[in-house]
Every structure is written in C-alpha cells, then in structure tokens.
C-alpha cells in the first residue's frame, strides 16, 4: 500500500560554507494493508524526518514515497489532491497538547475531521459521528465536549486525537511517539486503540518510537533506524532474539527488562 523507495534527506546548514547533515539515507520499506510497523531508533536517528516526508510536510532530497500507486511528491500537487491524501494518511503526534489550539474547545479538531470527509460540521450527522467517535475511544462525550485542551488530561487529549482518526478512517496512521507523554498504566489502553482501528477498518499504522519494549509489544514488523539508515528489520520475535546489526544488539542488551536483572 505504501512504499518508501531509496529515501534520502540532507539538511544543509550555513550560508557560505555549507555543512551537510544526512538525516535519512537510502531508506526503503513497504507497509501492507492492516499492518502495524514500528520505526525504532534513538533521537536523531531520522525517524521523525522519515515520517514528515511521508506526511508530505517535508520534501525529500531524493527518493520517493509511493502511496496507492501514486508518487506522493510528484503526483499529489493540487489542493484537492493534498486534502485527499491527508484524508487517507493521517498523523497522531507525540505531544497531544501542541496538536490543539488552546483558544478553541476540543470540539474543533473533531469538527475539522468531519469537514475533511465532506460532512457539514454543524449538522446533526456530524454531532452523531463525533459522539460515536468519542465513545469508540472510551471517552464520555458529555465529559469532554465543550472543554478546552488544558482541562483534559494527557491521556484524554490523545484519545480525542485518535477519535479524529476514527472519524476520518484513514488508510494509514502515522503515530509519532503517541504514548511517550502518557503514564504507564494508561499507555497500553491507548496503543490498543490502533489495533482496534485495524480490526474495524483495516487501517495500517506506522508507529514511531524510541521504546523497543513498546514496539515489541504492538508491531507486526520492526524496523530499527540508526544514523539515518534502517539497520535491522523483521518480525518482533526475530529482531529481539536474533538482532543482526551491532547497534540493535547493543540496544536490545540495554533495554531494561522487568523480570531480568542486569549485572552492573
């Protein structure tokens, strides 16, 4: 469904003497329908840059993103085409607070979602849809509608963002560290919403995280990124028990485990 081909992104700094930083180097992978794929890597490994290019927010230096047979950076140009693309490829970001405009109630992001699928946001149909979406993600509509972002907890804010995903029903969700600001006891309930979306609508998810344990738990396939490249790839069990690249080996050895203790 989505194919990333030889993606490279070079940032150039400076005016006279240019300094080149290769953020992403020759990255290729595919995401099939209904698949949950994790991009795991430390900060600066190029995970988010890759996501931004897929989301059509940041142009690549070279390489291409093919979604449903179209080259996203070549064939999707007009406003309608872009809106259509973002209807199919949707993002959930790390900090749910900064995804909201603090001057508006949270109803707004849901109404925007409704408008994106071509329904009048002030119609009864829209209200019905919004209520249904909130219930789907485990929120009580009367408790959250009409509230401002700061009146909700981090978990609730992130759930509202996922409720928007449910309204739009995208083919692909790019979730960039969606639970790293959420307390441990509630993390699982949020990542399981992505599984629920897959079961209901066959949505695929690219799950971007630095947390190997979480990636291991949720994914069908793990891609390990290191210094802009994908260095290891495979089903979670394989990556954990049989890491190939030196970096992955070091990473897996350093991930703290619950039932095993290190010798320090």
């Amino acid at each position: 469904m989505l194919e990333v081909k030889n993606l490279t992104k070079v940032y150039e700094l400076g005016f006279v003497s240019k300094k080149r930083i290769i953020a992403v180097e020759n990255v290729s992978f595919k995401v099939e329908e209904g698949e949950i794929v994790s991009l795991v890597g430390e900060s600066g490994s190029g995970k988010t840059t890759t996501a931004k290019i897929i989301l059509r927010l940041l142009p690549p230096t070279s390489g291409s993103i093919i979604f449903e047979g179209k080259d996203v950076w070549r064939d999707v140009r007009k406003r309608e085409e872009k809106i259509n693309y973002w209807r199919k490829v949707h993002a959930v970001f790390q900090d749910p607070y900064s995804s909201y405009n603090p001057f508006y109630t949270i109803d707004r992001v849901l109404k925007q979602g409704v408008r994106l699928i071509g329904i009048n946001p002030s119609s009864d149909k829209a209200d019905e849809l919004i209520n249904e979406a909130l219930e789907y993600v485990g929120l009580n509509p009367s408790e959250v509608l009409g509230k401002y972002p700061h009146q909700l907890s981090g978990g609730q804010r992130q759930r509202v963002m996922i409720a928007r995903c449910w309204i739009i029903k995208p083919k692909l969700i790019l979730a960039d560290e969606p639970v790293s600001m959420i307390d441990a006891s509630m993390r699982v309930s949020i990542i399981e919403l992505f599984e629920k979306l897959r079961e209901s609508y066959g949505s695929s998810t690219i799950f971007i995280t630095h947390d190997m344990s979480l990636a291991y738990y949720i994914s069908d396939r793990i891609l390990v990124m290191y210094k802009g490249r994908i260095v290891d790839e495979g089903p979670p069990e394989d990556v954990i028990s049989n890491p190939e690249h030196e970096y992955t080996k070091r990473l897996i050895a350093s991930v703290p485990r619950l039932y095993q203790k290190w010798t320090l």
Binding site: S185, R187, V188, D211, M212, S213, E237, L258, Y259
Partner: peptide, 26 residues
C-alpha cells in the same frame, strides 16, 4: 499489580499474555 501488568518488556511471553491497564485516571 495493575502498574506492573501494564508494562511492556522485551521478554518472551509478553505478547501472548497481553498487557492489562488500569481503567480511569489518577
């Protein structure tokens, strides 16, 4: 019990056992 049950760890069996979570919020 709830907190420990909600933590993913790269240990075999976690995927099959399924994690739990604590409903509600603090």
């Amino acid at each position: 019990e709830g907190l420990i049950g909600s933590i993913p760890s790269v240990e075999p069996g976690i995927r099959e056992r399924k994690l739990k979570y604590i409903p509600g919020q603090p």
